[in-house]
Design a protein around this nucleic acid. Sequence first.
DNA 1: TATTGTTATACTCTATAACTATA
DNA 2: TATAGTTATAGAGTATAACAATA
Lengths: 144, 144
Amino acid sequence: MSQTLPDHAQLASALRLSLLRAARRLRAQRVNTAATLSQLSALATICKSGPLSAGEIAAIERVQPPSMTKILASLEHSGWIERTSQPEDRRQSIIAITPAGRDLLAEETRARDEWLANRLVEFSAEDLRKLGEAVEVLDRLGSE
Amino acid sequence: MSQTLPDHAQLASALRLSLLRAARRLRAQRVNTAATLSQLSALATICKSGPLSAGEIAAIERVQPPSMTKILASLEHSGWIERTSQPEDRRQSIIAITPAGRDLLAEETRARDEWLANRLVEFSAEDLRKLGEAVEVLDRLGSE
DNA sequence: TATTGTTATACTCTATAACTATA
DNA sequence: TATAGTTATAGAGTATAACAATA
C-alpha cells in the first residue's frame, strides 16, 4: 500500500518540525531545578499507575532499562520513591512514590502547567480546541 | 487576568505530557547517522530562509549562540554549509547551504518523513485532520 | 538458559560564563 | 563600550554493550 505515503508525507514533515520545536521550548523552561523533566515524567507514571517494577516503568516511559535505572537512582536519592524487595522474585523490586514525591510532583506540575497555561492565554478558543483535539492523537503517536 | 488560568490548566497539563513523549519518539528514530536532528533543523532553516548570519540562525532556531556555533561547526565540517566573510562587518560571516547540503537535507527529510508517514497510516482521517489543524498552532507555541 | 536490572561508556543537545575580535 | 561569535565547561537525556544476580 505505498499509495498511502504521498498522502501523509506533507503532514509528517510539518508535524515533525512543529513537535520538535514546541518540545524544545517546553524543555528549556526550567521552573525549579529540583527535578528534571525526565524525572518528573517517570514520577508521574509511578504516581498514576501505582507501584511498578523498574522494567514496567521503562516500558511505559518508552526508554531503555539503563536509562530508567539512572532516573530511578536520582528519584530514590531525593527521597521521592521507595523500593520494596520482592520475596517471590529477588531480581525485582517494586517501586512506589513517597509522600515527599507526591508533594514535589504536585508543586512542579502546578508550576509548569501555569507557565504553559499562561502561554495558552494568548491563543484563541479555536486554537485551544485544535490543541485539545490533537492531544489524544499525539498520545497515541508517542506511545504506540 | 488570573481568571484565565484554571481554564487552561487541564489542557496545559495534558499537552505538556503528550508533546514530550511524542517528541521523544521522533528523536529516538535514527534514520541515518549522517546528521543529527538539531543539525537538520538548522540546515532546513538555512535552506529555507536564505543566507543568514550565525546569530540570525540561532534566533530563528531559538537556541543560544554557543549552541549554534557547535551545530554550524559540524555542518561546515561535513561540507553542508559555506561561510562568506563580510567586508562591511568582519565579525560576522554569512552562511549558505551548499549543493551537498541540499542533497543531504532532501534525503534525510524524505527518510524521516517516510518513517513518520508510515506511522500516520495507522491513524484515521479524523485523527489526521486533528493533527493537521494542530500543526500551525504548535508552530506558534514553539516560536513565540 | 532466560530474564531483570545495573555498570560502564559514549554521544547528542543545550546552557552559562568567560573570552576574542571587531565596531 | 557594545556587539558577534567562539571556547571552555557542565549537566540532562538517552543509547548500546557487557555484566551480575536470580529464576
